[in-house]
């Protein structure tokens, strides 16, 4: 008992007090800052990088840093609030800046705020990702990020959920389970795509074993870029969407 107490005391308080204004070390590769100019787009492993005008599609980007190291017109800043309700807004050009992006990328709907603002239970479905995004989503609930304090939780049963969070590029083999799970969630419900894989197929986009028809059938409410998605990106994305 005494040992347990000691361990407890040594730990102190671990949680990040102000999640919304937290910062990540500057080494983190997040929101792209782009100057119009040249860059060889063939170096990008996912086709996220385009020229004329120079742009990065955060829905495809793995934030690998290859372009930043090869070309002086691109810098990946440590801006981590990357989520958007609009797929097209994820495409960043020299005209975008972080401040404006974070204010306008998420369209706030009154009905969402009213229904989910105080409590949002999510069922996560992993569909052929690499376990990177899953580990970060798990971290959202640990003592540091403590997402539960905002009433946001992952639940076991889709029947208890208000929506699903999809990670991975959607394999053929998960098609049945994914749709089943979605249908088991009661209305109204939301769909969140988490990570480059889910949003665009990411690094696996050319695989023949994927089946992304689910996304043509059902509407997507929130896109959260990353590879993997950082816990602060995830929590802030959701908070902005439901508050």
């Amino acid at each position: 008992m005494l040992d347990t107490l000691k361990s407890r005391i040594f730990q102190g308080k671990q949680y990040i007090k102000d999640i919304r204004n937290a910062s990540i070390k500057e080494e983190f590769r997040g929101f792209p800052v782009i100057k119009e100019g040249e860059c060889d787009s063939s170096i990008c492993p996912t086709g996220a990088l385009k020229t004329n005008p120079l742009s990065i599609d955060m829905g495809k980007c793995t934030f690998c840093g290859v372009c930043e190291r090869a070309c002086e017109n691109i810098k990946l800043s440590n801006g981590f609030k990357l989520s958007s309700t609009d797929r097209n807004k994820l495409i960043i050009t020299s005209e975008s800046d972080y401040e404006t992006y974070t204010k306008s990328a998420i369209e706030i709907k009154e009905s969402i705020v009213k229904t989910f603002g105080h409590s949002l239970k999510l069922r996560q479905v992993s569909a052929a990702g690499c376990n990177g995004c899953e580990m970060e989503l798990n971290a959202c609930s640990n003592v540091n990020f403590d997402m539960g304090r905002f009433g946001i939780d992952f639940v076991a049963s889709p029947r208890h959920a208000d929506g699903i969070v999809i990670t991975g590029p959607l394999s053929e083999n998960m098609t049945f389970a994914l749709e089943n799970c979605y249908n088991a969630v009661p209305n109204p419900k939301i769909v969140i795509l988490c990570g480059a894989c889910a949003i665009s197929g990411g690094i696996f986009q050319n695989s023949e074993t994927l089946n992304r028809e689910f996304l043509e059938k059902y509407p997507v409410d929130l896109y959260i870029p990353g590879c993997p998605v950082h816990p602060l990106t995830f929590i802030n994305g959701i908070l902005s969407y439901i508050h």
Binding site: A128, P169, S171, N173, M174, F204, N206, S207, E208
Partner: peptide, 9 residues
Amino acid sequence: YQHRGIEEL
């Protein structure tokens, strides 16, 4: 279920 054709990619 996680099969995504890595060896072919």
